[in-house]
């Protein structure tokens, strides 16, 4: 075995230090959520579940959570359907026009959130979509489309075009080929895209702040308003639940990969 060099020690200690910086701040919400006080801080005299109880019994928090979940599922389904069809069409064409189309579809990744929210607001006013679920779903679907189109296209990169020629040569139509040959190949990308799209919608806050008033309240909006107005430990309880959920999902993902 090689002696461990200073070079290696530098990188390995450095990497663990950076990872600690990345992860530990997320975990801080756990003890804070268990505080027995009514303000943000570490538990004083003992642990308490009162803030979880508050979250789970508060109508506003629960309805915001539910709103975010169902909007997220609708957005993910719409974005996956539209984005998959789009990517498959572009993959078939593979010409200059289709590449320009792909660039157009990823524009939302690059435009600053406040700028696009401003655009949404003005147009949604004209369309009467302000403070409606349809308005939020439409905005989120647009923001999620880039992620679906990128991941579906990445999944299709390995698909052999000769298989398509074979299918067509044997008499399958474009639609039959799409459904029976291309879509199965795109499936891993569709799944990744669906998850991405759900998370984009579930976490989105800037557009929601611009295009909703009182009628639609999502979970991020509740958290945002809570932080602005008074920081109460219920936010820490919600944050803990979300962090733990992500932790479990990441662990499952890591185990499945290895």
């Amino acid at each position: 075995m090689m002696p461990i060099s200073a070079f290696r020690i530098f990188f390995q200690t450095g990497a663990w230090a950076v990872l600690a910086f990345l992860v530990l701040p997320l975990l801080i919400v756990i003890p804070v959520s268990l505080t027995d006080t009514s303000f943000i801080g570490l538990p004083r005299d003992g642990l308490s579940l009162q803030h979880y109880e508050n979250y789970l019994t508060d109508r506003e928090w629960l309805s915001a959570t539910w709103t975010s979940i169902w909007i997220g599922v609708v957005v993910a389904s719409l974005a996956t359907a539209l984005g998959t069809a789009f990517s498959i069409g572009c993959w078939f064409l593979s010409n200059r026009a289709s590449q320009i189309a792909r660039w157009i579809l990823i524009v939302p990744i690059l435009v600053p959130p406040v700028v696009q929210a401003l655009g949404f607001y003005r147009f949604w006013v004209q369309l009467g979509l302000i403070d409606t679920y349809a308005g939020v779903i439409l905005a989120h679907t647009l923001l999620a489309l880039p992620y679906v189109s990128i991941s579906v296209f990445a999944a299709l990169a390995n698909l052999d075009r000769n298989i398509i020629r074979a299918a067509r040569g044997l008499g399958a139509s474009v639609w039959q080929t799409t459904l029976a040959v291309v879509t199965p190949a795109a499936r891993p990308g569709m799944m990744t895209g669906f998850v991405f799209a759900f998370i984009v919608s579930f976490d989105e806050i800037v557009s929601v702040l611009f295009i909703t008033v009182r009628g639609v309240t999502t979970l991020p909006k509740m958290i945002w308003e809570g932080i602005q107005e008074n920081i109460d430990p219920t936010i820490a309880a919600v944050a803990t639940l979300l962090v733990l959920l992500t932790l479990i999902a990441t662990a499952i993902g890591a185990l499945r990969r290895s």
Binding site: L22, I40, V243, L247
Partner: peptide
Amino acid sequence: PLMLALVLLPFWVSVLIRSFSWIVL
């Protein structure tokens, strides 16, 4: 694999929650 998971975990947690953690800290 653990290191990679520790990179991905914060990636999937919303920016709002991460900013909240820093306010608390």
